[in-house]
Amino acid sequence: MKARRFSAVSGHSFLRWLLRGCALILCLSVGGLLAFLLFRGLPALGTRLFFGDVPALEALLGRQAVWDGLWPACAGTACLVGLTVLLAVFPGVGCGLYLAEFAPPRRAARIRLAMDILAGTPSIVMGLFGFTLILFLRHTFWPGVNTSLLLAAACLALLVLPVLVTATCEALEAVPPGLRTTALALGFTRRQAARHILLPAAAPGIRGGVILALGRAAEDTAVIMLTGVVANAGLPAGLGAKFEALSFSIFYTAAQYQSQEELLRGFGAALVLLLLASGLLACARLLEARFRRRWQGEA
């Protein structure tokens, strides 16, 4: 009792200042990093950063190749991310729907366990998975196969799968139960209710999950390092071709830059990727907030 009174009186303000110190350390270090990035990266932003000396329209239409700009890397990232989401949306949303609506409890627990383990798997292990898959295929059925855009997208799809499953599950659970009961009372089968009532009602939440998955796929570097990204490939030529990506070009610049101009481009790329990732997260949060407000208003 005595010790407690002591700590409550004199230890109190010390503790409070200690906690404030923690916050200060965090704000200073992260603020310093961000300020440094902005300070070095902002002057580089502009059409020159993306297209080099090539006119923007020519580069966008693919008539002229861009060698000293970020455009091929941006296009590569866009293709990669688009393909990833294309591959991941069906299993992700479908699995989430199955988990939330149909799965018997024991099976649901098992699928959730699998998703938890998948969510905890380091991304480089996903890359290794793609790598061993290619080695395996090369030794067995398909000797000519090589790491490519499609393989990288497939591995990334596996990486973002838990994000999609979790988002779908949570969106479906947030739909008010009254809607479900009403649908059943009107004579819907459960499958019809899921298809025509619950999925449309949960759509904004699921869309938020898809955008989160986009962000995760765009920022990831380790997976694509093992599955076919290269430093100089030009625009992605097809599903079976090597490709460039924004995140990898940042890593490559830090390791191998040879001139101040390349370094500046690296800072520009880092800033672009940061803005892209945070913009996507902001979108996802906004969608989620609107979704919650809508159903809370109605429920």
């Binding site: 069906f90 299993p91 992700g92 949303v93 479908g94 699995c95 729907l97 199955y98 988990l99 609506e101 149909f102 799965a103 699928i111 699998a114 998703m115 383990i117 998948l118 798997t121 292990v125 996903m126 290794l128 998975f129 061993t132 898959l133 080695l135 395996f136 596996l158 799968l161 499953v165 089968t189 459960r190 499958r191 019809q192 899921a194 298809r195």
Partner: peptide, 29 residues
């Protein structure tokens, strides 16, 4: 109409198979 449709079942199966394949490949290598 009470159980899951084949689409949802297939999706869940795909997701679980992905995890399984990941483990199988890494362990087998």
């Amino acid at each position: 109409g009470e159980g899951a449709g084949w689409g949802t079942r297939l999706a869940a199966l795909l997701a679980v198979c992905g995890v399984g394949l990941l483990f199988v490949m890494v362990v087998a290598a």
